[in-house]
């Protein structure tokens, strides 16, 4: 599979805790929060990559950098052969490749303009990137509504007059309006009921095939990952802990964090609790982390001395399966 997206050594740091004038005199420096730290990522043509991790691990930041809504601090983002990481996010908004990478946001209520009808929400990207006659825009909006099975009668409604599932459809129609090649989805179903979640997942699966898109699918729900993704990337405090196919991650997880994550998924069988791997303690601070210490140390059930002196790098565990742990064994 040729890589549509190839991210290498990507870092995104935020400055936090700017010192006041007196603190500055006393020599206090602002902290640097390492939200995304040296991440490599590849997504093939037509592939769905799931990105999982706990809140605060940097998965949304990574998604936003890839979608070019914010700029990386370091590293390259090669999309269809071009390094788009060098283009500032503000300029990228008018770049020809903008149409090729689109995003579906988490909360369909929060991400739609409450003063716009569903029609206007879907028409907005077309009007911006492909300005044309109003009739032509309207034709395309109706075509898109049909594509996501949104009844045409709902197009004149405002977001508050739509159900959660209908709003999700509007968000998806808007994102695919310009026929993107890569869709970045940030928790697209976590605000939906299970009955609606199934419909949206099936719709996304079908659209991927019909429009030939690749997905970067950010979620914290491992059951959803299993249903829709081809490969999974597990993130922990800004770094990749493990990457592999869905089969490899679910059947033979190598990283202790992945194992703990999988053991926490409810069994879905009455009376059966899976053997849990308890994570003790709190995560380390992502502010000015020691580059020599494994980020998972302290919560890891089997940390050793080496984990406190040498940052583990991603090592091959099998064909296309990598994990960043000193103690993991190749299958």
């Amino acid at each position: 599979m040729t890589a549509l997206l190839d991210v290498a050594g990507l870092c995104r740091r935020f400055t936090v805790g700017q010192p006041g004038p007196i603190e500055r005199l006393r020599g206090k420096r602002p902290g640097v929060l390492h939200a995304v730290d040296a991440v490599d990522l590849r997504i093939g043509e037509g592939e769905v990559l799931g990105l999982v991790g706990e809140s605060g691990c940097g998965k949304s930041t990574l998604a936003r950098v890839v979608a070019r809504l914010i700029d990386p601090s370091e590293g390259s983002i090669r999309f269809a052969g071009e390094d788009i990481g060098q283009i500032a996010a503000r300029r990228f908004a008018r770049h020809p490749l903008r149409r090729s990478i689109q995003m579906v946001f988490q909360d369909p209520t929060e991400s739609l303009n409450p003063r716009w009808t569903a029609f206007d929400c879907i028409a907005d990207p077309i009007r911006r990137m492909d300005p044309g006659a109003a009739a032509k825009v309207a034709d395309r909006v109706h075509e898109l509504a049909a594509l996501v099975s949104l009844p045409e009668t709902l197009l004149q409604r405002f977001p508050h007059q739509l159900s959660g599932g209908q709003k999700a459809r509007v968000g998806i129609a808007r994102a695919v309006a310009l026929r993107p090649r890569l869709l970045v989805l940030d928790e697209p179903t976590s605000a939906l009921d299970v009955s609606v979640q199934v419909v949206v997942l099936k719709l996304l699966d079908e659209l991927k095939r019909r429009l030939g898109m690749s997905y970067l699918f950010v979620t914290h729900d491992l059951e959803v990952v299993r249903l829709i993704c081809d490969r999974v990337a597990v993130m922990y405090l800004g770094r990749m802990a493990e990457v592999g196919t869905v089969g490899q991650i679910f059947e033979r997880p190598s990283h202790p964090y992945t194992r703990a994550l999988l053991s926490a998924v409810p069994s879905g069988v009455p009376g059966r609790t899976p053997q849990r791997i308890q994570l003790s303690g709190d995560p380390r601070s992502p502010i000015d982390p020691d580059p020599r210490i494994c980020r998972f140390l302290g919560r890891c059930p089997n940390g050793t001395e080496r984990c406190g002196t040498e940052m583990p790098q991603l090592r091959p565990m099998g064909e296309g399966h990598v994990a960043a742990c000193h103690l993991a064994d190749a299958a």
Partner: peptide, 28 residues
Amino acid sequence: FAAPRHPYTAKLLAATPRPGRHLEDLEA
């Protein structure tokens, strides 16, 4: 779980992702 009696319960169970189920198996 073994034998839902209300049609809604049955449909809710059929829509819930569970280990061993694929996307095609789930019904909205």
